[in-house]
Nucleic acid binder design. Structure first.
Length: 628
DNA sequence: GCAAGGTC
């Protein structure tokens, strides 16, 4: 009898895709008892080498199988002082709703010679792989464990992954295990401490859960930080000089090199010197070709930021829609940090698939007929997934309106990546007038190239400048002082917040939108619509509670050496660096857990000792609110 | 009643 190999993917959609490719399309599908999504697919496949022809059962989990929690006696909020949660025993158990899936793996493993793990090729995937392995080993202690390494579900790529399995990366799995333990202990300890302490302070907080999380709090911190900058903003008046020349029927505006100054008397004096000089002299005539670069290949963070801005969908909606487009096989995996295309990927074939489209099919054809350019490469590569791109064409009438928007964006972005930069000619004229320098700039767009398909970028020709000779002198038509006021920054928008989270390593591409939703749910922040119509944006404003928490924690650590406020992203960043050390083998999981716990425990002790600062902040913002 | 991370 042929040997049996059990294959387990991270999600049902991948199990099905891999089964389709390995079997050539003919396989048997079996439902499993207790879960409507997971299926077992059976077929034969020749793995080559020592394995040869095997009968395969391909199945999946649905994300993580297990969860970590405290031992039962520590789960009640009054069962122990919150600080004990830094040491309380924890246990990993299969989630209640995942029991049938775990059963399925144990049962299937009994008859299998080997287990091939087909989880996503990222850190979490490696940990999910270890969870799968544990179940398989529990069903069959002698089962051999291999891992298929693949980063997309293109047929040839999948088949090669099956023929060249590697081993599970224990380091990466351990890094995730450390992350899970730290998030649980730290999150639960601080959440219980602050909830129990603050609930009694003001009536508004009674019954409320005031959660702390290593990602939620820095996210809140960014919102409050911007809010305070807006609130504390004091407008200042400034003055500048503008010079105008009418020539060849055109009005040229020269801008001051110094832009503006905050002292009116000084500006007046400088203008007088200009006027005294009478003649301005052309000191630079610069004409040079310029270009506007086509965009980089699309990452998740970019999709969320651009999407919020141009498609008017919030980041959670965009991800949900993109997820659906991926599951239906229209676009590639939407969670990726990679902004460079692998050389092996056949971009032209993907472009050809867009020929049937009414809006951009013609553009796709022109690319293939000679305008194709190899995409630029960004600096990120998660080594797991390619940039987001369309994998097949879908007729717009098969999509709902949100799907249409997101799909169109992904396609246009992809075609733009494979296009030539936009080309233009820029002109810069510099003049010296008295002792001051001024300049005027002109732009002529010569070739739009990628701009024709990427309608989200704007690059327009400006008014053409008249001719100037280097060294020539002229008397300006007008020169005078203008006055202005500095304006306050705006409240944070969602795309800006995602950008900050990304830059500071807060959350993953898959969870950033959830953290934002969480701090809204906790009523730490609220949204407000700024402007109306097409130009409106959602802005994030902290509630009184949100401001109180950040101010309270900032006060807790002021004056203490080496302690960083929980509202800042630094602690989380450090945790991330330590996870990387586990991945590279320079630190063990235990070392990292202990070190990180020590760091957070220190902040915890300060917080307990100075809990009044937190309480005072809540009183200050929340009691006043009752009367105002 | 707590976290963040997978996925449905």
């Amino acid at each position: 009898m042929a040997r049996k190999i059990l294959c387990v993917a991270e999600k049902p959609a991948i199990a099905r895709a891999v089964a389709t490719h390995l079997s050539g399309g003919s396989f048997q599908t079996h439902a499993i008892r207790g879960n409507q999504y997971v299926k077992n697919y059976e077929f034969d496949f020749n793995f080559g080498g020592a394995w040869g022809n095997c009968s395969v059962t391909m199945t999946s989990v649905v994300g993580h199988l297990t969860g970590l929690d405290f031992d039962r006696q520590y789960r009640g909020w009054m069962s122990c002082p919150p600080g004990m949660l830094f040491e309380a025993p924890v246990q990993e158990t299969v989630d209640q709703d995942k029991l049938p899936i775990a059963d399925n793996i144990r049962n299937q493993a009994k008859y299998a010679k080997a287990l091939f793990i087909w989880t996503d090729c990222d850190r979490e995937g490696e940990h999910i792989g270890s969870e799968v392995r544990n179940q398989a080993k529990a069903g069959n202690a002698r089962i051999e464990v291999k891992r298929a390494k693949f980063s997309n579900t293109e047929s040839a790529h999948v088949r090669r992954a099956a023929l060249e399995p590697v081993n599970l990366d224990e380091y990466q799995a351990n890094a995730v295990a450390a992350r899970i333990e730290l998030d649980l202990r730290i999150g639960a300890a601080f959440t219980r401490l602050q909830t129990l302490q603050l609930q009694t302070v003001v009536a508004a907080l009674k019954e409320k859960v005031i959660s702390y999380g290593s990602c939620q709090f820095p996210t809140l911190g960014f919102v409050v930080d911007r809010y305070l900058r807006v609130k504390n903003f004091k407008p200042e008046t400034f003055w500048g000089i503008k010079v105008i020349l009418n020539r060849e029927g055109k009005k040229v505006n020269f801008l001051w090199r110094r832009v503006h100054l905050f002292d009116r008397a000084v500006v007046t004096m400088m203008l007088e010197r200009c006027l005294t000089a009478k003649q301005a002299k052309v000191t630079k005539v610069n004409q040079k070709p310029t270009s506007k670069w086509r965009p980089l290949p699309l990452t998740t963070v970019d999709l969320q930021m651009m999407g919020s801005r141009f498609l008017r969908l919030d980041s959670q909606t965009i991800m949900k829609v993109a997820e659906g487009l991926y599951t239906k096989g229209f676009i590639s995996y939407p969670r990726t940090e990679t902004d460079q295309f692998d050389k092996a990927i056949d971009l032209k074939k993907l472009i050809e698939k867009q020929y049937p489209d009414n809006a951009w099919g013609q553009y796709a054809r022109e690319l293939i007929d000679g305008k194709f350019r190899t995409p630029r490469s960004g600096r990120h590569n998660d080594k797991a997934h390619p940039p987001i791109h369309p994998v097949s064409w879908v007729s717009p009438n098969q999509l709902n309106s949100n799907e249409k928007k997101v799909y169109e964006f992904v396609v246009r972005r992809f075609l733009a990546c494979c296009s030539e930069d936009a080309k233009g000619k820029s002109t810069e004229i510099e003049i010296q007038y008295g002792e001051e320098f001024f300049h005027a700039n002109g732009l002529i767009v010569l070739e739009r190239n990628y701009l024709d398909v990427y309608v989200y970028d704007k690059w327009e020709s400006s008014q053409q400048l008249p001719n100037f000779e280097l060294g020539e002198s002229f008397e300006p038509t007008e020169a005078n002082i203008f006055e202005g006021k500095t304006t306050a920054p705006n409240y944070l928008t969602e795309p800006e917040l995602i950008g900050l989270m990304d830059a500071n390593g807060i959350g993953t591409d898959a969870t950033m939108a959830e953290h934002i939703a969480k701090i809204k749910e906790r009523e730490y922040v609220a949204t407000n619509q700024r402007g109306s119509g097409r130009t409106s944006v959602q802005e994030l404003i902290p509630t009184r509670l949100g401001v109180a928490l950040v101010e309270g924690y900032d006060n807790v650590v002021t004056g203490l050496p080496n302690s960083v406020s929980l509202s800042k992203p630094f602690l989380r960043k450090e945790m991330e660096l330590r996870m990387l050390e586990i991945c590279s083998g320079t630190k063990t999981r235990q070392e990292v857990v202990q070190q990180s716990l020590d760091m957070y425990r220190e902040v915890f002790i300060h917080t307990q000792r100075r809990i009044n600062m937190l309480k005072d902040a809540c009183r200050k913002y929340l009691v006043e609110s009752a009367t105002s």
